[in-house]
């Protein structure tokens, strides 16, 4: 029983297939996510990364495949249950922040609690978050008056106010200067390691990739786990938090099922990246 529970991943995505019209966007997508880890997905633009986040959050239905959250297939749920799942278990961070300009920063942070019928002590939590994320000076400002880095930190506070298990981020540093991007990256690491949140981050930002626990590359409709050796060669392995070693095998077991295909795909992906580099 106990063993069984340990084997259940926080999030497990299986054999996702998705077409837009006749165009295949995703055909072989398998991965799982554990608490306290940062998973990064890379891939060239238009390859379906955002679409994949939409599937994970239950906003898009794939043509085939399964998305298990704590062992339950969310794709079998109706809209109300999936909405509730989004409200309670998923936090979202975007490239362009998507704050509402009608509301102050503080009110933007509170916004998700308005749609969560089980939210308690919302404003107390918001105040704690503001303290934790160092936003006190700007909490009464309106988003238009804030810098990109500040806006993204407000958006992060909004993403975590309902205390979700998983935070999905879509190119969160894509619109930020280097320094702000660094801040945001550190914030992700802090939230993952201190608060045991799972991050799934779509990004091109090499810093985030280097600090991730798992790096997948989406190419030719397939998701392929990248070997970390490449990163290690660039940055010392010592920088990695120790907890990852424990969690990593779980990620690998899930990978075992589609071992042969993923190996093939890894080869393919490797070829492609090398071809790209020569160009």
């Amino acid at each position: 029983m106990k063993k069984n529970k340990q084997n259940i991943s926080l999030l497990k995505v299986e054999n996702i297939k998705l077409k837009f019209g006749s165009r295949m966007i995703l055909s072989d997508v398998n991965f799982s996510v554990e608490p306290g880890t940062i998973t990064v997905i890379t891939g060239k633009s238009g390859c379906g990364k955002t679409t994949l986040l939409g599937i994970i959050s239950g906003l898009l239905k794939p043509n085939d495949g399964k998305v298990y959250f704590k062992g339950k297939n969310i794709l079998r749920w109706g809209d109300i249950r999936r909405s509730f799942y989004r409200s309670k278990n998923i936090g979202f961070i975007f490239q362009f922040f998507n704050l509402l300009n009608d509301y102050s920063a503080f009110e933007n942070i509170l916004l998700p609690t308005m749609f969560n019928p089980f939210a308690r002590n919302a404003s107390k939590k918001a105040k704690e978050l503001i303290e934790y994320l160092n936003l006190k000076a700007i909490s009464s400002n309106h988003p238009e008056t804030l810098s990109g880095g500040e806006r993204q930190r407000i958006a992060i506070a909004r993403a975590v106010i309902n205390n979700p298990d998983i935070i999905l981020a879509d190119e969160p540093t894509g619109n930020l200067d280097d320094e702000s991007a660094e801040d945001i990256n550190n914030l992700f690491i802090k939230l993952a390691k201190e608060n045991n949140k799972a991050f799934v981050i779509v990004t091109h930002d090499h810093r985030i990739v280097e600090n991730s626990d798992f790096h997948y590359h989406l190419s030719d409709t397939a998701l392929v786990l990248q070997t970390k050796t490449k990163n290690r060669s660039k940055k010392p392995a010592a920088k990695k938090p120790s907890s990852i070693a424990k969690i990593k095998p779980a990620g690998k077991t899930s990978q075992n099922k589609s071992d042969s295909t993923s190996r093939k795909n890894t080869k393919k992906a490797a070829k492609k990246t090398s071809a790209k580099k020569t160009k």
Partner: peptide
């Protein structure tokens, strides 16, 4: 539409 889709992502149901 921006507001509607944002609130949908934040967990508002279609029916609401």
């Amino acid at each position: 539409s921006h507001k509607f889709s944002l609130t949908r992502i934040l967990g508002v149901t279609k029916i609401r």
